[in-house]
């Protein structure tokens, strides 16, 4: 046993000493890699670009975003292959179920006289009654318990909130919240 091991060891040692082929190396030149440019004085065009960039950084708020002018724009982005023809476009946009439909189930609200859908309640009248309920609930509510505090403690415990201009803007819900429009009124004179 011991003999055979020594023989193997010597063989392995001999193998390592044998001459080897050099390792294969394939190098593909990277076209996008930054090339080492010879440092020259900036040309006039480059100068103007730099100036432009500096300007942009200086007043970034008002400046228009710089449009990158690359040659690869048209090559790499997905774009439709052909122009959609007039007929195709009109066919798509004026499909039967995409058009506005007529409402034939219209009625008159018996309490306010405006138009409403049949078998549904008039939202205006419902909202008015709901608002009555809301005011009733507010009146019946108990006032929350208020502890009397030192002015100093008051300031410490309730420091108040400083609203950002955006929050202030959003507080005025009437400006941005979408509200239900009132339906048209059925005029007695017109309908006679």
């Amino acid at each position: 046993m011991s003999l055979s091991i020594t023989v193997l060891d010597s063989l392995a040692g001999a193998l390592t000493r044998l001459p080897r082929l050099p390792q294969i190396q394939v190098i593909i030149p990277n076209p996008f890699a930054p090339q080492a440019r010879p440092q020259q004085a900036a040309t006039e065009q480059q100068k103007t670009l730099r100036e432009k960039l500096q300007e942009y950084i200086n007043n970034a708020v008002d400046a228009a975003p710089l449009i990158p002018t690359g040659l690869l724009e048209g090559l790499l982005r997905a774009v439709p292959k052909k122009k959609v023809s007039h007929r195709r476009k009109r066919n798509r946009q004026l499909q039967g179920d995409k058009q506005l439909k007529l409402l034939n189930n219209l009625n008159r609200c018996p309490s306010c006289g405006h138009i409403k859908r049949s078998h549904t309640l008039c939202m205006h009248c419902v909202e008015q009654i709901k608002s009555i309920w809301r005011t009733e609930a507010k009146l019946s509510e108990k006032e929350p318990f208020k502890q009397e505090l030192d002015p100093v403690d008051q300031k410490l415990i309730y420091p108040g909130k400083r609203e950002s201009p955006y929050e202030k803007q959003m507080n005025n819900k009437k400006e941005w919240l979408e509200r239900r429009q009132r339906t048209f009124e059925l005029n007695r004179k017109e309908s006679k």
């Binding site: 008159r108 609200c109 018996p110 306010c112 006289g113 405006h114 009124e185 059925l186 005029n187 007695r188 004179k189 309908s191 006679k192």
Partner: peptide, 9 residues
């Protein structure tokens, strides 16, 4: 009065 529904409507 004009806006409210009546017997004519």
């Amino acid at each position: 009065r004009d806006n409210l529904p009546s017997e004519n409507l």
